[in-house]
Nucleic acid binder design. Structure first.
Lengths: 341, 341
DNA sequence: TTGTAAGCGTTATCAA
DNA sequence: TTGATAACGCTTACAA
């Protein structure tokens, strides 16, 4: 291993001079020695020891990405939303000259431990951490950026999207296409997260149009015999013609089950998703969905983090990105004589 | 920040004793003081400083995952194969009590730099690194595990699958279903990677059955007007009835383009993929594909890495995992009077 | 512009 | 079973 000392000896200077050069403090060192030292360092293949740096300077160029690990066998990175976000974040963080640690988190206690242990410069939270935010902020006096949080904690740096508006847009679109009897498919909502807001927006528009969703039209993720259930609600006197899912991956399940039981999309059942993952445009038929710009979200997250690292007294910011309708082929136009839109 | 010294003072012992306790050297310390110290450390919220540890012990509990960044806008983690593998790897590595760094790699030089800089205990390479393997091994005297490598370097620790056999299986299945005129869709092959072997296996079985693939039946990923191209080969006197893709994500593109131009799968064109990503079972129709067990691959990778870390003189091992056919609905049975199988 | 000295939090080594 | 001391590679603070 090549150290500052090794280079210093070869160059006939002190290791401090080498340190200065390696850190790019060009004005503190004469141009001549600076260039000479740089050359020697290159020749010797010098690589600075990040641990030593971190130890001596009480700071590191390390960012931690924390992924909520809900459940042993559901790997967070199998969700395309998460992997897309993380991928873009990793890219951005590299551009900034920082390194990235990936942490799966089950218990709260693990978080502070890993952040402190490596003396990270900042952290990004991907998933639901709302319950621990206050404590997290108290225990870790470093920049923390949350995503998609609806925590009641006011002073929080967060990047999210307009989930409520997205729900509204989905409902508006269904109405515009003449649908009057709709259903909903997604995780059973217990928390105050993105799903809740998407539904609320969706329901609010329907209510304003005088349409209510009976509770049997709320189908839970993980429902057994989903296909049969779908067939059931699409039959009868007042059949459901469209279903709103809170995430594209839920829509994919609808596609699959619909195919299994012979329900055609969109002829027999229209489907709208949320996210616009890259798969959605490739589905048969292409999925109509509410698009969020995941890459933008990641780059905004990174920007915010860097800003907070460079100016530790930056005020808390909650950035809300817009959403838009990606109109494709999974919602059909219904001939509806009573259409008012 | 709580340090060993702080705890030592409170407990009235030297920091060495505390260090021993924190490292679980129970036999070196009397049970009584051990318990007392542990309690104090808990109370004070002690978190060991990994940088200091790494510096003093010349070893870290850090693993680096290196992802090949082929291209600015194609993010490696957007590929479900990669994110699934990484996700499982992250899980396993955490179980082993190690931390994980994520590195995007464009140039060779970055690799050694990042490994040395953090003094990592081992590294996993995800993507094509064949050209640099020799140099990588020379420059970094730590356990390196490669995946899907067909490098000519003999002494390499690698985890891969039987790509050739997978290609054979796909061809055998097409033949069994009565297909005689087949096409291929995938990246233009220039290297000696997995794609090459999958095609070779595929072609070898066809050749043995007396079937040859004309060069116009090799369609490159990125072909413009893919849909029209597909329509072209599926028409005429001797229409293509089935297409083999070297990865499921390629098959998804076929689905999309086929839908666009009104080609039905599998009625007009049968499709087989490779990988069996979680989306494949949800496609319309469900994709018939060659399955590899990505999670198993990741856990084997982790096991191998740990073994090499614990026993640095372990011999190089190249583990090849099997593949199997996931028979679903995208390949139809063709009535073929000349069928010989 | 350059150098000296001390110290970051931990472990290795040897002594008690 | 415990402790003293030196080191790990680097930066901070100050001195020359």
């Amino acid at each position: 291993m090549v150290t500052l000392k090794d280079i210093a000896q070869r160059a006939g200077v002190s290791s401090m001079t080498v340190s200065r050069v390696m850190n790019g403090n060009t004005k503190d060192v004469s141009r001549k020695t600076s260039e000479r030292i740089r050359k020697i360092a290159d020749e010797m293949g010098y690589v600075p020891n990040s641990s030593a740096r971190s130890l001596a300077s009480h700071s590191s160029r390390l960012i931690a990405a924390l992924l909520q690990e809900y459940d042993e066998d559901r790997n967070p990175l199998e969700d395309s939303y998460t992997s897309c976000f993380l991928g873009e974040l990793a890219h951005q963080i590299k551009e900034e000259g920082y390194d990235l640690m990936l942490h799966y988190v089950k218990d709260y206690s693990e978080i502070t431990y890993s952040l402190k242990s490596w003396n990270v410069a900042g952290a990004v939270f991907i998933g639901m951490f709302d319950e621990s935010i206050r404590k997290l902020q108290e225990d870790n006096q470093i920049p923390l950026v949350f995503t998609d949080s609806y925590s009641t904690v006011r002073s929080i740096t967060n990047v999210g999207i307009d989930d409520y508006r997205g729900g509204e847009m989905a409902a508006e679109y269904f109405l515009k296409c003449g649908h009057r009897n709709l259903a909903f498919f997604g995780p059973e909502v217990l928390d105050n997260g993105v799903v809740t807001h998407r539904i609320r927006g969706f329901v609010s528009v329907l209510r304003e149009a005088g349409i209510s969703l009976p509770s049997e039209n709320f189908i839970n993720l993980g429902t057994e015999n989903l296909g049969e259930r779908l067939k059931g609600i699409c039959a009868g006197e007042n059949p459901v013609t469209g279903i709103f899912t809170t995430a594209d991956y839920c829509a994919y399940q609808i596609y699959s089950e619909a195919y299994r039981v012979g329900l055609r999309i969109p002829e027999d059942l229209s489907v709208a998703g949320f996210d616009d993952l890259s798969m959605s445009a490739l589905m048969t038929p292409p999925l109509t969905t509410i698009r969020q710009d995941i890459k933008k979200k990641a780059s905004v997250t990174c920007d915010l983090l860097m800003k907070n690292i460079r100016e530790p007294d930056s005020p808390a910011e909650n950035i809300v990105l817009g959403v838009e309708l990606a109109e494709r082929g999974s919602v059909r136009k219904v001939d509806n004589p009573f259409s008012i839109l």
